[in-house]
């Protein structure tokens, strides 16, 4: 009676020859070659014009601080646009978030439709929205506020419905069992559980919108971006540097306030 020794486990040939890794590398290489052909990317062109680029950087490293008083007012306007736009967007997002939450709405079709609509809104970049709303509403901060409202609506509604889906269902069942209406349930059982996180996400969106609103003016939608476009158009790069640095300060201050408030809230 011969007991054959059990065969050593063999790696399948796909693992032995690293088929997946080689395949991915080849795919990446092909995509890289194709996309550099398509974009005409050529490191030599960059190097041969590097002196122009460096001259620009040198100009930028000497900010014209006298420009600061010109841009203070548009800087305020930028923050104001961000505050209003975020608020409008967040308020609009609440009913959509409630309808898109799977633990509140049983109807899969309605939920799917709402989520698809929100996905569609989120595909559009902020500057693209700005270009369209400037065409509709004319040049000025109105177009900026509406752009930011739509942009934050798409973002906030997703964050909100994901929060709603994590709530404790106990209070909802308690209210439902004593015969409360939908509105009462939402008001007394859903909102108290999510309010803090809503405010936290609202502040987070505000941070993003302050950053976004600084460039919207480039297309005529108000705020500091108007001056950004003007200084770049006039090749006044030392003014551009002041604008960028001032924006950095504003963004850091708003981030700091918002981070502090969010830590207090959660």
């Amino acid at each position: 009676m011969t007991e054959s020794t059990p065969a050593l486990p063999q790696r399948p040939w796909r693992q032995r020859y690293h088929v997946a890794a080689i395949g991915w590398t080849l795919l990446l290489a092909v995509l890289l070659v194709l996309s550099s052909l398509m974009t005409g990317a050529n490191f030599g062109t960059f190097l041969s014009n590097i002196d122009q680029f460096l001259a620009l950087l040198v100009q930028m490293s000497h900010p014209a601080w006298s420009y600061l008083h010109v841009i203070l007012q548009p800087l305020y306007e930028t923050i104001q646009m961000a505050v209003l736009g975020t608020t409008i967007g967040a308020v609009l997002a609440v009913p959509f978030a409630l309808l898109a939450a799977s633990n509140l709405v049983g109807n899969r079709l309605l939920r799917g439709l709402i989520r698809f609509f929100l996905d569609l809104v989120r595909t559009l970049p902020d500057l693209l929205l700005a270009a369209i709303f400037v065409a509709i509403f004319g040049i000025g901060s109105t177009a900026g506020v509406i752009t930011l409202a739509i942009f934050s609506f798409g973002m906030v509604s997703k964050l909100f419905y994901e929060v709603i889906e994590t709530i404790d269902m106990g209070p909802l069942e308690a209210l439902k069992s004593v015969g409360a209406t939908k509105v009462t349930i939402i008001w007394y059982a859903v909102l108290p559980q999510i309010l803090n996180q809503f405010v936290s996400y609202f502040l987070y969106t505000l941070e993003i919108n302050v950053r976004a609103s600084t460039v919207l003016g480039y297309l005529g939608a108000g705020g500091i971006g108007v001056y950004l476009q003007r200084s770049l158009g006039e090749f006044n790069y030392s003014a551009t540097a002041v604008i960028i640095l001032a924006t950095l300060v504003v963004v850091l201050v708003i981030d700091g306030i918002s981070n502090h408030l969010r830590r207090v809230l959660l």
Partner: peptide
């Protein structure tokens, strides 16, 4: 400014 307008 450095490489001219275009996708690069």
């Amino acid at each position: 400014k450095a490489v001219g307008p275009g996708s690069y």
